[in-house]
């Protein structure tokens, strides 16, 4: 008697009536409740973020690209990595100070084509892509490696585009534009690229 009373009155009233009428829905509600209980645990774990991954890619692009000798004033001159717009919001902020093949990485914010000519790497953030097409095309004939996570970046005249594919981050290369700029992509880079196209710049 007592057990029956407890069972009836200690169930959440809404859930009780639902369970009586629709056992399947009750099951679903129970599943939802369990989900809410384990939720806080999920928040504790932080895998590598998109931003961290993209920065790690950019480091590798620098590693596997060969600039013409004139691009560096001295053999140990820094590699200048520029971001169009605000670098703090993008992939590059975290790579400042790293060293690649004897060159320290410097990160700079740029806003015009003139400034961009002085860069070794130019990162174009996805969101501002259309605003910066002019700058992107203006540096096409200088040894500036252009990288972006914007969709269709290599179609727009960029050199290396970061793309999401099969839940992995991949990259594709427009070799035509790279050659025009006298940049040499290593065979390693070309081999691991998802796509390599050879469209000409205009």
């Amino acid at each position: 008697m007592t057990t029956a009373w407890t069972a009836r009155h200690w169930t959440w009233p809404f859930c009780g009536s639902v369970c009586a009428r629709r056992p399947s829905l009750c099951l679903l509600l129970a599943a939802a409740a369990v989900w809410l209980c384990v939720l806080p645990k999920a928040l504790g774990q932080q895998p590598l973020s998109d931003v961290q991954m993209k920065a790690a890619f950019v480091l590798n692009f620098i590693r596997y690209t060969e600039w013409p000798e004139r691009s560096f004033a001295a053999p140990d001159a820094p590699v200048v990595a520029c971001v169009l717009g605000d670098p703090s919001a993008t992939a590059l902020a975290g790579i400042a100070g790293r060293s690649i093949r004897g060159h320290a990485v410097q990160v700079r914010a740029v806003l015009s084509a003139d400034e961009a000519h002085a860069c070794h790497v130019l990162f174009v953030p996805d969101i501002d892509m259309r605003r910066f097409v002019g700058i992107l095309r203006a540096v096409q004939n200088s040894p500036v490696l252009t990288v972006s996570d914007a969709e269709g970046f290599i179609d727009a005249g960029g050199m290396i585009g970061l793309v999401h594919f099969d839940h992995r981050l991949q990259f594709e290369i427009n070799l035509g534009v790279m050659q025009q700029a006298q940049l040499k992509a290593s065979s390693q880079l070309l081999r691991l690229a998802r796509n390599v196209i050879e469209a000409r710049p205009r």
Partner: peptide, 20 residues
Amino acid sequence: APQAVPDMSLEELINTEVVS
């Protein structure tokens, strides 16, 4: 928070699942 950039090879990077 500012995020540290992992030192991973290109091969590792393209094989890392981005789950977020």
